[in-house]
Design a protein around this nucleic acid. Sequence first.
DNA 1: CTGTTAGCGCCTTCAC
DNA 2: GTGAAGGCGCTAACAG
Lengths: 354, 354
Amino acid sequence: MAVTLRDVAQHAGVSPRTVSNVVNGFPHISPAMRAKVEAALSELNYKPNLLARSLRQGRTGIITLLVPEIAVSYFGELAHEVVERASERGCTVMIDETGGQPDRERALLDGAAESSWVDGVLLSSQGLHGRDLAGLAPNMPVVLLGERTASTTLDHVGIDNVKAAREVVRHLIDSGCRRIAAIGGSVGASDATSHLRLKGYRQELRAAGLPADGLYARTPDYTRASGAAAVRSLLGREDRPDGLFCFSDELAAGALRELYEQGLSVPSDVSVVGFDDVAEARFATPSLTSIRPDKAKIATVALDMLFQRMQGSEAKPRDVRIGYELIVRESSTLSPRPARSLARPMQRGAARRP
Amino acid sequence: MAVTLRDVAQHAGVSPRTVSNVVNGFPHISPAMRAKVEAALSELNYKPNLLARSLRQGRTGIITLLVPEIAVSYFGELAHEVVERASERGCTVMIDETGGQPDRERALLDGAAESSWVDGVLLSSQGLHGRDLAGLAPNMPVVLLGERTASTTLDHVGIDNVKAAREVVRHLIDSGCRRIAAIGGSVGASDATSHLRLKGYRQELRAAGLPADGLYARTPDYTRASGAAAVRSLLGREDRPDGLFCFSDELAAGALRELYEQGLSVPSDVSVVGFDDVAEARFATPSLTSIRPDKAKIATVALDMLFQRMQGSEAKPRDVRIGYELIVRESSTLSPRPARSLARPMQRGAARRP
DNA sequence: CTGTTAGCGCCTTCAC
DNA sequence: GTGAAGGCGCTAACAG
């Protein structure tokens, strides 16, 4: 069996209390005693039982990150930041997937709150509204990631989606687009993120006196396949769009692919903009213009806020807006392109055949 | 404070033992008693303290998944499978990132073994050899994911990398390629995965009587940027390759991008094949031929093996090979392509400009 | 079938 | 500065 504090105490000929003091770095201990205990410690290769310690102290040093799906690049990249930042502070991260379904979000949040495993929760919510969250997990520190969904009871950190969306549309207009479509959404009838991006999209179009009617293709999720399907439906219209604002880079990747299959050139026929600026965006063909939220900062700030709550802060819930940047790339500019590139007729390299 | 088993017992006028029995579904309880206890249970809204339970039982129901980087699509997709499968069995997954660095792999594995948080570990190792792992975590159930790195002391599940690599090269040869380069690797001098893929690559080339000299571009990691850099270096040669075998889809994505920038057509000038078949591959332009490991099965089998170990199995370590599939797409075939596609000269849609 | 008792391993309030 | 006891909440032995 594992070696316990008692074993060490016995071995060193002192009381368990003393050993505990040494292990936890309690200041007032005689050097002789300390040396003796440390010798016993390393000799027996003692490792404290964190379970027992947590039971006693009431904290575990574990936080939970709830995201819709970890295999979606944006959430993967966000999780990466969170894990890294948390580990710098001696915290471990548990990751669970909600699938973006409100009931699963609720169940997992509830579970986390009752489980006694975790000290706090970061929830990247897609479907739950403020009122849904209100009653849940009253004693568990929770910070919302992404959209706030109108709750005033929880801390929240994210970017200004309306503003970012307007910036995207403004950019498309400036690039010469006149019929700009929006693509995105998710199963949840109340997907706040897409709701806000759509709002910004409409605001900016209205401000520019451009039409938005029938140019929004709602999708069941944020996948590439949905992006491709949305493009198919939009191209079915006689008056096809010349600009696409996709609510995620994955959607945009699917859109690019479908446009390619339909024989349309990007950006000359249609400009495309994504959202999130995942790693894939920079290397897509053509490379993808996108909104880049400061993910590292989101993680840092979210953890800051969570730790404050975990330390018992009862301050009024805060709503922190994080910076973002519009990264303009080939998919929405007509600036210089690589020498031959897509423009060159494809050669069916028959000569290479055996 | 939280309501405890004692509170419930008191409220129901029974002993803690009885309450515990009801909570844990112990069979032999009189219906009357059960009803009484359950009433008290729901009335007080009792939630068992998992920490205390685990301390008592010596198991937590948590397993750790160690991957190089969660933001890398393959590991994200794998993690998704693992989390899903584990949750079906009532297990929670903790995810940590090793960065592919042997010392971090060691430290985290060690940490997991001593932490008392976790019942078992799935390690997707990149740098540790069998002998490095031998002494570590002797009492912790561990299953290796990916490459076995010559250890005979641990269970292992993965695909046959040599065979898969040979299949890729064979496919490239059959497609007419004669100068086939390999791209991949990582910082670890002992990256077993790339080692095996390289081995398969060389075997198949030798079998076909084709040259391999100087056609391997080693990379420091599996990123798109490295793929692009590798292509740049390979194209510097006078006798440039007509086929690329990339050890990951990300590398391949970077390669595609760089080829595009250099004005080379895929697959007519150069064929490209990736590895892992991440979601991005199907929607890339051109879509990417790749090896698709059965990720769901890897997760299932790995968890099976881990649970057996967790139940105390002392059986001889097993080495299970999981199936894979070569998914042939546009990047390596000259079969029918979309109507106009890349072949059409780019039109600089000037008419659209204001 | 149910109640009583005794720890799991640790930390912390009290005394000394 | 150090030792002795108590208990965090739960479950596994034993009785009865």
